[in-house]
Design a binder for these strands. Structure first.
Length: 579
RNA sequence: GCCCUUGUAGCUCAGCGGAUAGAGCAGUUCCCUUCUAAGGAAAAGGUCGGGGGUUCAAUUCCCUCCAAGGGCGCCA
């Protein structure tokens, strides 16, 4: 059982005995200052009123009654105390300090579990679909999309690691007037084959439309006409659409492969164009939506405090939301989902409120299990990105820059002689992913090129470097007693400080999974790496004073490396053995 | 007009209602004849936008003001 739960149960019981009180939640935290302890509770202050006693008195009494013998664990056929001490502190805290035995036990657990260390069964039996990326065929991916891809990818891994049955889905917006804009330009000016990376080429066609449509008012009607023909199934128009869209897929395939992002299933918007209209008709019948004076079909949502939503255009053609309603229904019912998560930027907040509410009032019970994981916008130091003002940073371009920089960096290192390209790519991606994941995903971030292309401090490469160093020492040691028992334990500060973070890994992976928050993991891994590096700088490992100390430090090194590797994997970052 | 979000060190960001507000970068000092210096150590840097309130306790919750973003029926 988890330490936290065990502790909570013990405290609850004791409060019942001592004060005859039932406490629902016993809040357990890690104290801000480690000298106080590894766990703490504020429960004396919470119950002071009901117990009619000063909080400090309660803390004193409870800490005394709990005692360090209260909680035990078994290891190597022996019982050990979980805590080294239980103490109280004003204004009414109880602090618990973990025993050296427990901290050593954690190391043995890490070695035993290996890549599975930190995994949990939190989501056992739950099926979740995570839809992310949702690229727009008209625009080459920029760093905002990169944030989406990295976040979605990491959330999928986190959920799987906590026992969920996860389906990574991508929804391709291949149907709509936006595609027709590129198609129209191709019809007018296009070459037979793309003259640049195919998806970028289509992007250029679209950009051309944007530029020229102001001076060519007839374009708008030509596009509308083209889309009507497309929806009506006109063979020639469909052939053109297929041609354009296949170029886009070709380009994307490369980008996704570069980013190390993949999906279990792809949904195409065009597959939902007809059934989507069916669901709109049901909404009409139920009086949820109505036809307005122009002929457009509108869902009336104002009584729920949400803006009304157009579901079909006046000319009867469909829009994004038409298909999205149907997709939600299909996936929920066909995949038997327990939850569906949409990783989409925060500006779509109202849109998803509308969609979710419509499905709810249509009577779909599963509508409450739809969740919009809204992530913040990626801005530039100059302000919001804007392709019109030329203020865009493309995803491919950042990766190229990072790879180039990393190759130069490797050039100065004597450690890497083989696989330069592969290592450069991995380190570059680590910098990229970590840079976009380390901030709370709900927040807008400012993308500072100089900062992301730095490989020092709180960065992905720093964590990889820490791992590589650890591996290097382990390789030189040529093996050690991985079961270094408790009897070999040599208490020492820099090492213990690492252990005080290591044991928290399972808590962190669970919290990150429950909150869909990779940044929690980033914060944790950085803290771990910092402490390990301090240990590394001050405690010789291979030349330790005694053999026991050497074994123990090697064990600590191996444990740290394992946790770093497991954690980085959850962020979509692959470690390298040397760099 | 309505709705949402943000305001923490020069910059970029952490901070779970708690016990002296934390990093990284930049700037200042140190540390490679020792296991990878993509590292480590030290000092410096903050009226947590302003003002009220709730609480034993507020950067954290509520209200208000100021400032900056974003979203609002036929785009995605």
């Amino acid at each position: 059982m988890e330490v936290t739960q065990q502790l909570q149960a013990t405290i609850k019981e004791l409060i019942g005995q001592e004060y005859g009180l039932e406490v629902e939640d016993v809040f357990i935290e890690h104290p801000g200052n480690e000298t106080w302890g590894d766990y703490a509770t504020n429960v004396p202050m919470k119950i002071a009123g009901l117990a009619k006693q000063p909080p400090l008195e309660i803390a004193k009494n409870l800490s005394y009654k709990i005692g360090k013998e209260a909680v035990k664990f078994t290891w190597q056929d022996r019982e050990w105390d979980l805590f080294e001490s239980v103490s109280f502190a004003p204004p009414g805290f109880i602090n618990f300090k973990l025993s050296s035995e427990w901290l050593a036990f954690v190391l043995s657990q890490i070695m035993e579990s290996g890549e599975a260390y930190g995994a949990s069964i939190l989501g056992e039996g739950k099926k979740v679909m995570v839809e992310y990326s949702q690229p727009n065929p008209n625009k080459p991916l920029h760093i905002g999309h990169a944030r989406n891809n990295f976040l979605g990818n990491s959330v999928v891994k986190l959920l799987a690691f906590s026992g969920h049955d996860v389906i990574a889905a991508n929804y391709i917006n291949d149907w709509g007037t936006h595609i027709c804009k590129a198609m129209l330009m191709y019809q007018k000016y296009g070459e037979a084959v793309p003259t640049s990376k195919p998806d970028h080429y289509v992007g250029e066609l679209y950009a051309r439309f944007e530029r020229e449509s102001a001076d060519n008012p007839q374009f708008a009607e030509e596009v509308a006409e083209m889309f009507r023909k497309l929806e009506a199934g006109d063979a020639e128009t469909i052939a053109l659409w297929e041609k354009i869209i296949s170029w886009v897929y070709e380009g994307w395939k490369e980008t996704y492969a570069d980013q190390g992002v993949s999906f279990d299933v792809l949904f195409y918007q065009h597959n939902y164009k007809d059934s989507g209209k069916d669901i709109v008709n049901i909404a009409l019948e139920k009086g949820i939506a109505e036809k307005d004076e122009t002929g457009a079909i509108i869902a009336r949502l104002e009584k729920y405090g949400i803006p009304d939503k157009v579901l079909l255009r006046a000319d009867g053609t469909s829009i994004y939301s038409t298909q999205d309603l149907q997709l939600a229904k299909d996936t929920f019912e066909n995949y038997n989902l327990d939850k569906r998560i949409y990783v989409v930027d925060v500006r779509q907040g109202d849109y998803f409120k509308q969609i979710f509410k419509i499905l709810e009032i249509l009577g779909f019970h599963w509508a409450q299990n739809l969740y919009h994981l809204a992530y913040g916008v990626v801005k530039l130091p100059e302000g919001s990105m804007s392709s019109r003002r030329g203020l865009v940073v493309y995803a491919d371009e950042v990766l190229d820059t990072l790879v180039r920089k990393e190759k130069a960096e490797i050039g100065t290192s004597l450690k890497v002689t083989d696989n330069v390209d592969e290592i450069a790519k991995k380190v570059a991606l680590a910098a990229y992913k970590y840079g976009l994941l380390k901030t709370d995903s709900s927040q807008d971030i400012v993308f500072d090129y100089d900062q992301v292309t730095k490989f020092e401090g709180n960065t992905g490469p720093y964590l990889m470097y820490t791992y590589a160093r650890a591996q290097s020492v382990l390789a030189k040691a040529g093996g050690f007693d991985a079961k270094a028992s408790i009897y070999k334990y040599v208490p020492e500060e820099p090492g213990k400080s690492v252990q005080r973070v290591l044991y928290q890994f399972p808590e962190i992976t669970q919290a990150a999974s429950q909150q869909y928050a990779p940044h929690l993991l980033c914060n944790y891994l950085f803290e771990l790496a910092q402490r390990f590096n301090t240990f590394y700088a001050s405690s010789p490992i291979l030349t330790a004073e005694t053999n026991d100390a050497k074994d123990f430090r090697l064990l600590l090194t191996a444990g740290t490396a394992q946790v770093l590797k497991n954690g980085l994997n959850l962020l979509g970052i692959e470690v390298v053995e040397s760099m």
